[in-house]
Design a protein around this nucleic acid. Structure first.
Lengths: 146, 146
DNA sequence: ACTTCAAGTTGTACTATACAACTAGAAACC
DNA sequence: GGTTTCTAGTTGTATAGTACAACTTGAAGT
């Protein structure tokens, strides 16, 4: 096997290990916000509000799944729905103040965990690793991970 | 924010994206073998058989979860249980021929997907990316992802 | 106006998971 | 050697996340 092939094997194996671990650990670290809820809230913050359908499309989730997630987040008062006056089918989702706070808090705590895990890494390696991950994820959707 | 800090942010974000995508896509690609079943079979192949308890410990899963996964894999005739003659509480799990085949087939197909996604990468980058991932995953357990 | 399309909700089902209670066997300790 | 304690695994129960299908409501096109 060439060096490239063997590297691909390793990447596959390590990405699999990471994926397998991530959800469970996210749930353990932040019982109040699952990985999915976290990313949904993050998306709302980034876009400053959007529709449930947009979330479903962006994360390749069924609209029923998003509907229930949104309902739960609203119940927890982390988001609110605003009826679009232009189109009464549409509810634009927005973070509430509480949602913003929880999101910031979880982000801080996740960041701390990553920092700790990467504490010993030289800056040069961090920058390269980050670039590789971006490049990997930006690759053609559907190949394996979308 | 320093270059290192911003790289950590990116790593966190991209790892999260990857983790969120991975399970669902694995399920879509291989309905016959979930990501968890796949890793369990892989472990059995690598170790040439082991106990359910070992699987639970290694993957930080509850023994009840493993018990049900194992039951399903046995029902599908992908693994078999052999009673340990030394200790009648113990069942040593082994891949069956069918299990070996399915595992090989899914591995091939996953490998093809990764290869395609990484096809344009220079060998040097593949090797470095693989090393970074190994280093990341080998880090202290529990920080974030175990 | 009628049809078709789009946004969301709800019913139903399945998978993965954990925790707790249990059974069966092994080991340890007087 | 019998009692207690530990270990391996199963089963009951509950929860989260997910998908698909059927439905409701509103918008748009013909």
């Amino acid at each position: 096997m060439s060096a490239a092939e063997s590297a691909v094997e390793t990447i596959q194996r390590e990405m699999t290990i990471f994926a397998r671990r991530a959800r469970a650990s996210a749930g353990r670290m932040h019982p109040e916000l699952s990985l999915v809820s976290y990313t949904l809230l993050g998306h709302l913050e980034e876009r400053d509000g959007c529709r449930a359908t947009d979330l479903a499309a962006h994360y390749a989730l069924d609209k029923s799944t998003v509907s229930r997630q949104v309902a739960a987040l609203e119940r927890a008062a982390l988001i609110e729905r605003r009826l679009d006056p232009e189109d009464h089918r549409v509810q634009v989702l927005h973070l509430t103040e509480a949602g913003r706070e929880i999101l910031a808090q979880v982000t801080r705590s996740r960041r701390a965990a990553f920092r700790e895990r990467l504490a010993e890494w030289p800056e040069e390696d961090l920058v390269r690793f980050a670039a590789y991950l971006e490049r990997y994820n930006a690759g053609p959707a559907g190949a394996d991970t979308e």
